[in-house]
Amino acid sequence: MATEETMQHDDEASVPETPTMDEPEAEVDTESVAEERVPIVLSTAKPDPRFPATNQSKACYVWYNEMHKCYAKEGQDADACLRIKKDVRSICPVEWLETWDEAKAEGRWWGKY
C-alpha cells in the first residue's frame, strides 16, 4: 500500500513536467482550482433528539457548553470537538457566540468550562 501511495505522489509531482499529454493538462487545471477553493460540502448539524421542539435556543447553548467541555478534555484541535464546533456555528447566531466568547475571555463566564 505504501508503495502505491508513493507511486501516486510521484505521478502527481510529474504532472507539470509532461504538458504534452491532454489528460495531465486537465489535472493541472483542477488542481489549481482546488488550491484556490476549499471544496464546499453540504452538511449541517443533525437534528438532536434531545431538542425536538421548535425552540432550538437550548440546543445552541448546550452544544456550546459541550464544545468547551470537549476543549477542556481533548484539546481544541480534536476531531470530536471540531465536529461539535461546526454544529454550534451552524445553529447559533454569530452575535450570541461573540457575546459568550467575550464573557469567557473576560472571565465573566458562568459555566463550568
Binding site: V38, V41, T54, V94
Partner: peptide
Amino acid sequence: DEVVDPAVTIKAIGHQWYWSYEYSDYSQ
C-alpha cells in the same frame, strides 16, 4: 414541525428594519 435531516442551515435574523442572513456551514 419535523425537521428532516437537513443539508443546509440558514439563520434569518430580524432587525429594525431589515433581515440579515447567516450561512455558517461553509466557513473555513
